[in-house]
């Protein structure tokens, strides 16, 4: 087996592939951005929008929409159980991976990320439109949540106590506790700074080529994670501030490198750094 190959390449498509499948009714393009207005300024023809805050989050609790709300969402977007959903977005596909993760959580089977995301599509001069498409509603049936890809705090604590691998994908300044929030976001975040004891710091964007937003090669990715002791033989938990950046790392480990057991801790530092009586390392 060639080592320089993604483990599950079928979960990644190139912009060329997407351009060739714009009219394919078995495919639904979904744009998921950090900026909530970017889709409205122009998107790939036929693409629908999910906003990670107003669409995917529960309106009241700190949680995601539930299984039934997810079914309603898919029906509204014209996604049926056998639709292939292709995600793309801004910021190196950061929020595309977040949406992908939630779709995987509710058991959707056919999922892909468009390599390079929105920035690469635009840089290649490919078409954008402002037309908002509508699709006939579907009878979508979601599966119960797949907790094998989502970690909750008690589990993270046990994981830490057993000295199992944890990846903190935030910036080095957040990891060190120098900052309580993302650079540039004052007053955002947690009561305490630092990281979960034992976590290694691998900032999420290191998995991406900055010039064109595409994922780095399998060899580069493997070296990046293995050099920090992150190997496929153990269960791994990744976290960041609210679980969005770490969903990109989760995607890389699970689908591009084929690590069998990877979880995203979406509570992340905004939960851990506010919890009473949990260990913190600086």
């Amino acid at each position: 087996m060639s080592e320089n190959r993604y483990a599950y390449p079928e979960y990644l498509v190139e912009t060329t592939w997407v351009a060739e499948h714009l009219e394919d009714p078995s495919i639904r393009l979904v744009e998921s951005n950090e900026d909530p207005l970017l889709y409205e300024t122009g998107h790939i023809p036929g693409a629908v929008k999910v906003d990670w805050f107003t669409t995917l989050q529960h309106p009241l609790r700190r949680d995601f929409i539930d299984q039934f709300e997810f079914e309603t969402l898919c029906s509204r977007l014209g996604i049926s159980n056998d639709t292939t959903v292709v995600f793309y977005g801004d910021k190196h596909n950061w929020f595309a991976c977040y949406a992908f993760w939630l779709f995987a959580y509710y058991g959707h089977e056919h999922l892909k990320i468009m390599n390079g995301g929105r920035a690469k599509w635009v840089a290649e001069g490919r078409p954008l439109t402002r037309d908002i498409p509508t699709y006939p509603p579907t009878q979508y049936r979601a599966k119960p949540p797949d907790t094998s890809i989502r970690a909750f705090r008690d589990e993270v604590l046990r994981h830490m106590e057993q000295r199992l691998p944890l990846i903190d994908v935030r910036s080095p300044q957040e990891y060190s506790g120098e900052l309580l929030h993302m650079p540039g976001y004052p007053q955002e975040g947690a009561q305490r700074g630092g990281h979960i004891p034992g976590a290694v710091n691998i900032p999420w964007a290191q998995a991406v080529t900055p010039e064109n937003s595409t994922f780095k090669s399998p060899d580069e990715l493997r070296t990046l994670f293995e050099s920090h002791g992150i190997t496929p033989d153990k269960e791994i938990i990744a976290y960041c501030r609210i679980g969005e950046r770490s969903s990109l790392t989760w995607f890389v480990l699970k689908y591009l490198l084929g690590y069998p057991r990877v979880k995203n801790y979406d509570g992340s530092w905004t939960e851990w750094g506010n919890l009473v009586n949990v260990p913190i390392e600086k």
């Binding site: 909530p36 107003t54 993302m182 976001y185 004052p186 007053q187 955002e188």
Partner: peptide
């Protein structure tokens, strides 16, 4: 209600 707390923080900045 339509923007996340961290984005509102950016606007405050």
């Amino acid at each position: 209600h339509i923007l996340t707390p961290q984005r509102v923080n950016g606007l405050i900045a």
